[in-house]
Design a protein around this nucleic acid. Sequence first.
DNA 1: ACCTGAACACCGTTCAAGT
DNA 2: ACCTGAACACCGTTCAAGT
Lengths: 227, 227
Amino acid sequence: MPTKSVKRTEGRARLNRERVLRTAVEVADEEGLEKLSMRRLGEGLGVEAMSLYNHVSNKEDLLNGMIDALYGEIELPSHDDDWKTALRKRSVSVREVLLRHPWANGLMDSATSPGPGTLRHHDRVLGTFRNGGFSLAMTAHAFSALDSYVYGYAKQERALPFDNKEQAAAMATGMLVQLPASDYPYLHELMAKHVLQPGYNYADEFSFGLDLVLDALERARDAERAG
Amino acid sequence: MPTKSVKRTEGRARLNRERVLRTAVEVADEEGLEKLSMRRLGEGLGVEAMSLYNHVSNKEDLLNGMIDALYGEIELPSHDDDWKTALRKRSVSVREVLLRHPWANGLMDSATSPGPGTLRHHDRVLGTFRNGGFSLAMTAHAFSALDSYVYGYAKQERALPFDNKEQAAAMATGMLVQLPASDYPYLHELMAKHVLQPGYNYADEFSFGLDLVLDALERARDAERAG
DNA sequence: ACCTGAACACCGTTCAAGT
DNA sequence: ACCTGAACACCGTTCAAGT
């Protein structure tokens, strides 16, 4: 009896949307978003650029699909944790995903229509607030405030011109020369007396702000209930 | 006695870096960043694209310069206000500037070296915290948390696929069909019972989160002092 | 149904040549 | 010193043609 043939040209899997998106993410991770052209992506898949148009309608569709695929990597808020713990974990996960795929954050600005992965993620976050005792109006406030902070932090972190502590120290020392105390006294002070001191790590600022926002949201929820 | 001639070809001012940057910002505002090519910019200045390379070293330098120019539009924190008022006003100003130049926020991610306008702005913000009684460590925390929120909010706001309330309502009604309550119950609820209700405006969420962060920073400052 | 080669209308940037 | 024309090595996308 006939079965579906698994034989493909040169053993290469047949092209499909998922494989196109996955390879696109890999190329962007390894070579940067600016190197991700339809021709380069085709090359990575052993195919001509024009074949891609059978699986994505254009480059914008490709980029939207890549973003939606990333939402699948983010840890959804767990039903087993209380709202604050659940959202803390998922916020840490958002940051990790954006560190792993540094090209993604800037792309979200222009991403037009959210895909199913994106919608599912947002739905679960909203549900976590609702089940944590937040009113509908307070949930809207809280969702906006929390995600503004989380994505904004990832953006600031990415804008830093170094990837690790050693580079940061070298960079900061170099910058200090460019930052005369006469022109920029407070930047100079912060660099010399804090950022360049042993033990400082910008990455640690994430937790401070995250707890600041989560604790403040809890207070806002309680104030509304009391009021 | 000879004076400098003011006569220019066709009365056009002589090209210089400032004029190049200003025109580039205008083109990006009016036609979008993706339309801002060296050829298009040259056209806007009545000059061939290649002439621009006498005033910017390449496109990256152009984009960095545009970002730095925008910092000049942001209202610096005033010395006459208390720290919270001063930073509230400047945060509102940041958001207004990013609404006026929607292409800028995404660009800041990749902006490599900060220009003098950027440094001056950051120095004044840091100084406002310091003079408001924040320790050096708490100033680093506060600076990171506040700007993460402000830039993150602008980013979320920009990601919304509509520009005003009417469009938002039309869009949301259309989306509601795409958001079956069975798949996305909380998104559905938020849309139907809150976002689509008369009087709701996403723009209002900015103030809530901004005050949330500023008030929380004040508490953190006071807790550190007391501790 | 899926893939391709050639073509179109663009890019950023270089370089030698003009003034 | 500043501006330009031609050229190079790229883009995203279309379309008719192949299988």
